[in-house]
Design a binder for these strands. Sequence first.
DNA 1: ATGGTAGCCTTGCTA
Length: 258
Amino acid sequence: MKIATWNINSIKMRLPHVLTWLESAKPDVLCLQEIKCATEEFPTLELKGLGYHALVSGQKAYNGVALLTREAVRDPELGLPGDPGDAQARYIEATIGDVRVASIYLPNGNPTTSDKFPYKLAWMERLALRARALLESEMPVVLAGDYNVCPTDADVYDPEGWREDALCRRETRARFRTILNFGYTDAFRIFHPEPHRYSFWDYQAGRWMRDEGLRIDHLLLSPQAADRVIAVDIDKEPRARDKASDHTPVWCELSTAR
DNA sequence: ATGGTAGCCTTGCTA
């Protein structure tokens, strides 16, 4: 089972790219973030034409996440538990086959002097609680998405310049490690120990052309999922296209249950 | 040289 994550920065702008990538990469599940549209505006019919179901938690203008799946999902859950007053559409979760999959758009948290930073940290603590609860199911779990977290300096083109940014701050990295310490694995690092492999390049200042990026899109695997992972990679091809998202897909392949 | 780009819409906010 191939499971991918991609922050597409508006489904309306990126639908042709998404359709092209689905046709070539053929994932069983594609976790989308920043769809930037209301649920009823999502292009469900166009995706159905390619053979994908869409489970959507939309929001007008900002945020919004979705799960595109070849087979129908079971037990869908919209929203991250723990704060009924949180109106931002950043989390969606469902079962596909025997795997529990979440599409996550973790808050950016900048500027760190604003209330956005404590919101990010609190959101990460809620995510950790959910991640821990999912372990109790003993299912394979894949927590996929734009974490807005550079786990280490090896995931940043300019660690000194980014040290005080919300994506790199020690408080942010500590909360990310909390989830790893429960027993989740950063899938990319199983197969790719080399530093400076990125999933995001800012639109500004020629960052893509200079390969000055960040690795902030992650697939976190529960022990039962990590036992089955046979490949992981970042597909840089979509980032090179005209009118590209500033993120590119990250994917993993799990062997079939036996 | 403290900029630059992109997408949305509250022509400012978010990233």
